[in-house]
Design a protein around this nucleic acid. Structure first.
Lengths: 242, 242
DNA sequence: AAGTGGTCTAGACCACCCC
DNA sequence: GGGTGGTCTAGACCACTTT
């Protein structure tokens, strides 16, 4: 599958080898990879070279080092998602807001051209469509339309809705054995149309942000395409430029 | 000014020393810093330690290495700005769209509480306010309100408007000797009010994105606060999560 | 050819974590 | 105490750029 190029420097080839092992789930997320000394002796290189390779992996976000404990396969940082830029209304100061999910629709459908393109599947492939709301204390935080390839996620169709729970990715893992590795997100804004207004919990014509997310597994294949709409007033994104 | 903490590892202290020199404009942006061997002998450390320090600076975006040529003080990457997420309408396929700036207002004003907070100045400090439009072929791309501390930017008040040109940051440098080092940006969306609609080139009530930008100099002091409004339909931002 | 950054080694010692 | 990652050294050799 993944070819290691001999012309690359050793630390790069070593990086590729370790990354391939992570992709193959040789070590599960949250588990340690072999120690630096071990990797050095396994691959017949100096520890400094192993460190360099792991430096690269750390920079790419694939692993994390913990001093004295080891180097861990990292779960993707979904706390950096644009979805986390939706301000959650504080009801009582200090009180933890409770986020609830409500699945409004669940169906097996053929992939439309748009869905097929996003999920990188042939048009007409069997898919699962979920329509969902995220709520905070009965108020709609956002509305979501979610598309999944049926081949990987069939259990989601038959399982009781309640057993899916409020977080989707743990359910992907628990019920379907699908691990999320990376995601690509895009952000636009629009005046919401009548067909989506109720789902997003706003009046027709109000400004909303539209967040598109394509999630990929460790095999780089698309797992999930999601389109989220939320009131623009709740959205606030910051970043630094250097 | 900047205190170097003895308890830090050498490569960190070295990083701080080099960063301080960059901040003090000892080496101008675009110029090289001393070679790694030179820095090693100057500071009495091994080359490996110098490399580590520079690795950190590269990661922070302060310098760039060029193999065989040297290590250069970098200009900030404003091509990553959210402003670059505003789609420019293609008029003729292949034709390069020409971006034009039009300064509509230029005045000396006292800092309001909001402006003062952003620019980290006392309320009432003398400031310069610019109101500007960016246009593509007579069509408004975005509208901007810009606030600058008068103490640093006084020449902008008296100079001919035409001599400011279409790009502000080169003018800051050329006319006022102010170099931009970093920026913090934030993004929200709203239905535009009547007071800003004309400037942004859209009808009242239409959805717009609002981009706030605070620019800082190498001394970390705020140089410019800018609030930009642009039609939401033109905005598209992408990112990857790992 | 000289100077720069890039790779790599082999080893020392330190700081942290867990048993 | 034994294992882990973190720092640091001194040096070799390579690859690239400029003179």
């Amino acid at each position: 599958m993944s070819i290691v190029d001999d012309r690359l420097p050793r630390y790069q080839r070593l990086r590729d080898l370790i990354a391939a092992d992570i992709a193959a789930q040789r070590w599960a997320p949250g588990q340690t990879i072999p120690s630096e000394a071990e990797l050095a002796s396994i691959h017949g290189v100096a520890v400094g070279t192993v460190r360099h390779a792991i430096d690269v992996l750390v920079g790419e976000g694939l692993v994390t080092r913990v001093h004295g404990r080891g180097t861990f396969v990292r779960r993707p940082a979904f706390d950096q998602s644009l979805l986390r830029c939706l301000r959650i209304p504080e009801l009582e100061p200090g009180a933890k807001p409770v986020l609830i999910s409500r699945i409004l629709e669940r169906a097996s459908l053929k992939a439309s051209p748009e869905v097929a393109e996003r999920l990188e599947l042939p048009v007409g492939t069997d898919c699962i469509r979920l329509v969902r709301q995220k709520l905070v204390e009965r108020r709609v935080l956002r509305g979501e339309e979610i598309w999944l390839p049926k081949a990987r996620f069939a259990p989601l169709l038959t399982v009781e809705l309640a057993s899916i729970g409020h977080d989707l990715y743990p359910a992907f893992e628990r019920l379907c054995g699908q691990l999320v590795a990376t995601a690509e997100e895009s952000l636009t804004a629009e005046a919401i149309g009548a067909e989506h207004a109720t789902l997003a919990g706003v009046a027709t014509g109000q400004p909303v942000v539209v967040i598109d997310r394509l999630t990929r597994g460790y095999d780089r294949q698309p797992l999930e395409w999601r389109r989220v709409r939320a009131p623009a007033s709740a959205f606030h994104f910051r970043r630094e430029i250097r």
